[in-house]
């Protein structure tokens, strides 16, 4: 991952983190944008999966299933944020599985 890619993703994921906590309707678009920025990078599969989950219309429902999906989105974004920050700080984190394992 090149430094500009990493810095771009750190910023994008910071925005997504706050949007999720605030239940902001911009969460989906912000996450889709972060996913596109990560396409082809090691964290791409995590963010693609998170963006898929966030596309659901009832993301903010109080139903247990919707809450579980929100939490899964948060975990995938957090994993990506940690990996990208580690890259910025000097090491490469483990890559998620490639297409064949998803």
């Amino acid at each position: 991952m090149r430094a500009p890619d990493a810095v771009r993703l750190v910023a994008a994921l910071g925005a997504v983190e706050i949007a999720i906590v605030r239940r902001d309707p911009m969460t989906g678009p912000l996450l889709a944008q972060a996913s596109r920025a990560a396409d082809g990078l090691t964290v791409g599969p995590w963010l693609a999966a998170a963006a898929d989950l966030a596309r659901a219309s009832d993301l903010w429902d109080d139903a247990s299933s919707a809450r579980a999906r929100r939490k899964a989105v948060q975990v995938l974004c957090r994993a990506a944020a940690h990996a990208v920050q580690a890259q910025v700080l000097g090491i490469a984190a483990t890559a998620p599985p490639t297409e064949g394992t998803q």
């Binding site: 599969p45 995590w46 999966a49 899964a72 975990v75 995938l76 994993a79 483990t94 890559a95 998620p96 599985p97 394992t101 998803q102």
Partner: peptide, 10 residues
């Protein structure tokens, strides 16, 4: 699919 992604986290 999510379990496979989770396994890769650690």
């Amino acid at each position: 699919r999510l379990a496979a992604l989770e396994a890769a986290i650690v």
